[in-house]
Design a protein around this nucleic acid. Structure first.
Length: 523
RNA sequence: AGCGGUAUCGUCUAGUGGUUAGGACGGGAGAUUCUCAUUCUCCAAACAGGGGUUCAAUUCCCCUUACCGCCGCCA
């Protein structure tokens, strides 16, 4: 590996649920590794059996991969991994932790503790009453000074126990470390005899973190900032284990404004659908757009870079911790929408079609069937005004497309005809237009024809003429084309009408005009 | 309670011991346009409060406040 290369990792629990904040952390870690020529790996922290979900690894691997985040080593599926430091799943590493733990006990740096949950609870209550700091330490650490004989006997009696660190900390001393994002942080030393190995022999996060990140060669630990408070524990663990400490960078969580309190709060798995990465997939925000958005909150100079380099791949942007925000950003769906619209507007027709199909296949089967029936026709819809110098920005997510394209697949049931014209006027316009309509007209000839016809029927050729002398006209060309537009699509607002008529095809256009005329006659 | 962290337009942020405090999203107005969407122009919009230090503080220091974390055999 090149000099300065960082080894980073993403280490989630196998809940199958990928939080947007988790994706963010994974993304930042991946950038940190790959912009330095290093390695990014995936480790699964399944030390809490209660959290586990069947096939939970798959969901996470897929979630990350879908976003184009490359995992170099570690878990690559539910059971498989690649890389030199396997196993990458903590439940399979029990022996390793036990060995290190045993070493600590032998050196007198850790000890078994037989306290029950009830006893610990009682201690906590007492501490609370005395307004002391809670925790297992000092005089409250009852098992700290058990004799060898006492321990032996309890074990022989089959009493369950955990292994605790015999913390060498001094509450009057402080430790300091340099955080990659937050800068220098100083905190009192850890004095808690934290649990290393739980009753079931599985390590706690703290212990597993120290052992694994050491063994797996992590150089830069990137994780949520809720871990900052645990830093003294971790530093102490590295010290007693005789390991070199990695660098740390603590990321602020992605927040959301709470409707009730108006305060900030973390995006919540339970309350906020947009907390789940799968949400973006479901509604069809392109992965690249989501990543692009994440990048704007990861590095504050990214937006300017994007403005300066609209066509470069985002991988070319140089990610740096120094440009990361110290505070937690509020998640802004509106901004995501804007980024997504811009992104989609730049895709070519085939790309759009491909992505729409991929989305529809999974989340809107009917629409998928509709599109697949005649792929060329479907593509021609998405081709409308695409590739222009100033492309339209009206699709934010694939979920928008069924409604956006509906009138191409269904004849109008309702017509939003303009109110300022009488039915007879509109019938006249349509009848007349049927006569002059030539499906083979090119785009440049098409609109002048509508203008000429408007004039012949007593409408102003252009809105400005009408505005000058409204009493001279029945309306203007806008009213006329409106009638044609509504007759063809049912809607008042659509993209370029010429292109729409071209896509619909001559026969269909004529049929729709007739249907509209009949409808107007009925009313 | 204690221990940490954070604080610039509504949002994401840039920035500096002396600036008309900059940009992006969103909002408003106008222009372009057959509608809509684009595009373009313009506008409104911020240094949490109080003390210091200094000729000068949004910037440095302290306090307060607010918000966020953490205090588990969860991670």
């Amino acid at each position: 590996m090149p000099k300065g290369a960082e080894v980073t990792r993403f280490a989630p629990s196998p809940t199958g649920f990928l939080h947007i904040g988790g994706l963010f952390a994974a993304f930042v870690s991946e950038r940190a590794a790959h912009t330095t020529g290093g390695v990014f790996y995936l480790r699964i922290e399944d030390t809490d059996k209660k959290r586990e979900v069947e096939n939970g690894v798959t969901g996470i691997v897929k979630g990350i991969r879908d976003f184009g985040i490359k995992i170099d080593e570690g878990m690559i599926s539910e059971t498989e991994s690649t890389g030199d430091y396997a196993p990458y799943i903590q439940s399979k590493r029990a022996e390793i932790y036990r060995t290190y733990c045993k070493g600590l006990v032998e050196k007198g740096l850790a000890y078994p503790c037989f306290c029950t949950a009830e006893e610990l609870q009682a201690v906590r209550e007492e501490q609370e009453k005395n307004k002391e700091n809670p925790g297992y330490y000092g005089k409250y650490a009852k098992c700290r000074n058990l004799t060898f004989e006492q321990i032996e006997e309890k074990i022989k009696n089959g009493e369950p126990y955990v292994v605790r660190l015999k913390s060498p900390g001094d509450e009057n001393k402080r430790v300091s470390f340099e955080d990659g994002i937050k800068g220098k942080i100083e905190i009192p030393e850890n004095i808690l005899d934290v649990v290393l190995l739980k009753t079931d022999g599985i390590p706690t996060y703290h212990f597993a973190h120290a052992v694994d990140d050491h063994l797996m060669g992590t150089t830069y630990v990137i994780r949520g900032d809720e871990w900052i408070s645990s830093i003294p524990i971790h530093l102490q663990l590295f010290e007693v284990l005789g390991f070199e400490t990695p660098k740390y960078a603590h990321i602020s969580p992605i927040m959301k404004e709470d409707e009730e309190t108006h305060g900030k709060r973390k995006l919540s798995k339970r309350k906020d659908p947009e907390a789940a990465v799968s949400y973006y997939h479901e509604v069809g925000y392109p992965n690249k757009a989501v990543l692009e958005y994440l990048f704007t909150i990861a590095n504050s100079n990214y937006e300017q870079w994007r403005l300066d380099n609209p066509d470069l791949h985002m991988g070319e942007f140089k990610f740096e911790f120094s440009h990361m925000s110290k505070a937690g950003a509020l998640f802004d769906l509106v901004k995501l929408t804007d980024i997504s619209k811009t992104y989609i507007s730049k895709l070519n027709t085939d790309e759009v079609f491909e992505q729409v199909m991929a989305w529809a296949k999974e989340y809107n089967k009917d629409f998928y069937e509709t599109l697949i029936k005649d792929p060329d026709y479907s593509k021609s819809i998405f081709a409308i005004e695409r590739g222009n110098e100033k492309p339209r920005k009206d699709i934010a997510k694939w979920e928008d497309t069924p409604e956006y394209t509906r009138y191409f697949f269904e004849r109008p049931e309702k017509y939003e005809f303009p109110e300022n014209l009488s039915n007879d006027d509109m019938i006249q316009i349509l009848e007349e237009y049927k006569k002059v309509y030539n499906h083979n007209d090119i785009s440049d000839d098409w609109f002048p024809k509508v203008r000429d016809m408007s004039e012949a029927l007593g409408y102003a050729k252009a809105p400005k003429f009408y505005k000058k002398n409204p009493e001279q006209y029945k309306g203007h060309v806008g009213d006329v084309s409106s009638v044609i537009r509504v007759a063809a699509t049912g809607r008042r607002n659509t993209p370029d009408l010429y292109q729409i008529l071209q896509v619909l095809g001559k026969d269909e256009v004529m049929t729709r005009f007739d249907l509209a005329i009949n409808k107007l006659k009925e009313d």
